[in-house]
Design a protein around this nucleic acid. Structure first.
Lengths: 219, 219
DNA sequence: GAGTGTGAATATCTTCACAGCT
DNA sequence: AGCTGTGAAGATATTCACACTC
């Protein structure tokens, strides 16, 4: 028998695309909330997200019934419900490996903390960088990652190393018992099954732009 | 009758996922090429990309027949074929709007030029930033974007402004007749149909990590 | 023998359409 | 009357399985 859950997951297999859209809904809903809107229908939210209204209702239905028939969704409640469903209703402690240009930019990116991701450790293997202060954090030697992660009870890791060092960074994170990795390095990494990896690769997006523009031009 | 094409597109409707995977194949293939491998089967490439071998063959089949039965794919040839299919066999001139932490990091990111995306203009509306030199470029006022884009024949735009200024940046890019936009700002933007937009939102990925880890813990 | 290219089968995701609540 | 929640239908994407080629 499965353990009792914090929220009602109606199905085991939630499409990956649904999760991505939920993150989008939160973004758009928080915008609407700031603007003072209190209630919204799936139709209007759909328009703002450029998706189909049924899509939104289906996506939400995986987690529960958050709407009111004849009325729509109370925005504040819905934001709360989605955030709880996604597990972002609390702060996630995060470490970053690779203090290059991109790493620095992310460490200085205030939005991370704002969105519930608190980067509490910065690591690099370059002796010239170790000891440096970046955005209020002292850059530490990657060898000390495991120790620090245990000390501070960290859950997530971000890799911003050059591609050739991404696998080593991943190994350190796995060794430190981190179960979620966001990899910005343009390189595949191999990790055990229980570690979940997300890739952010700008070039894949640039390639996609190039392709679609080329296609359009040829028409 | 459609105009003659540079490469043989077998179908009009190529899945978006296929394009993303092709970019991944190029990445992995270039790695293999650097390591000196000359030929690879769909099975081995599939393993390296963690996808299904038929998937690879199907993806490639949209563009042509690049393999040799009984042998596999010649890596150098395949890289060339995919790059040509995607339209990344030549340099794409690119401008960037929003010279904040992230913008600076991208301007300093040598890999962009290496991968065929040459960022030749940096724009911002902050008078304190205008005139500053970043990675060999003078930061210009966003008002001069149109003029510069025409002068230099630019095709792609990157938005790295704060979310509240993303739409204005997009308007400037559309005005300058740019047809492809990579938007790093965590905000939806509205553009005409003929403009293709790709979104890069770190937080969507962070949310996804949070969700999958939460799910795993509850099991 | 080995491995591609591809139609057919399967799985997955999206949209429709409407019953059911407020 | 209005809008959600959802089974059924439709569209898309992935995988299988094998004919075909080197």
């Amino acid at each position: 028998m499965p353990p009792k859950q914090l929220y009602s997951l109606k199905s085991e297999n939630i499409p990956r695309a649904t999760i991505q859209r939920l993150a989008l809904y939160v973004q758009v809903l928080e915008d609407l909330d700031r603007q003072g809107t209190e209630v919204i229908s799936s139709e209007l939210l759909a328009k703002a997200c450029t998706v189909n209204p049924s899509q939104i209702r289906k996506d939400l239905a995986y987690f529960g019934e958050f709407g009111v028939r004849g009325v729509g969704y109370y925005i504040k409640d819905l934001i709360g419900a989605i955030k709880q469903s996604l597990g972002v209703d609390h702060v996630w402690k995060t470490v970053l490996v690779g203090v290059g240009n991109l790493g620095r930019a992310l460490l200085n990116h205030a939005e991370f903390r704002l969105r519930g991701f608190d980067i509490i450790g910065a690591f690099d293997c370059d002796p010239f960088k170790i000891g440096e202060q970046v955005s209020g954090l002292e850059v530490l030697c990657t060898k000390r990652l495991k120790e620090k992660v245990h000390e501070l009870d960290v859950n997530l890791g971000i890799i911003t190393t050059p591609p050739e060092r991404a696998q080593r960074a991943a190994n350190h994170l796995v060794e430190a018992n981190i179960h979620g990795i966001l990899n910005f390095a343009p390189a595949r990494i191999t990790v055990p099954d229980y570690v979940y990896v997300e890739y952010v690769d700008f070039f894949h997006h640039m390639y996609s732009l190039a392709f679609h523009i080329t296609l359009e031009k040829e028409r």
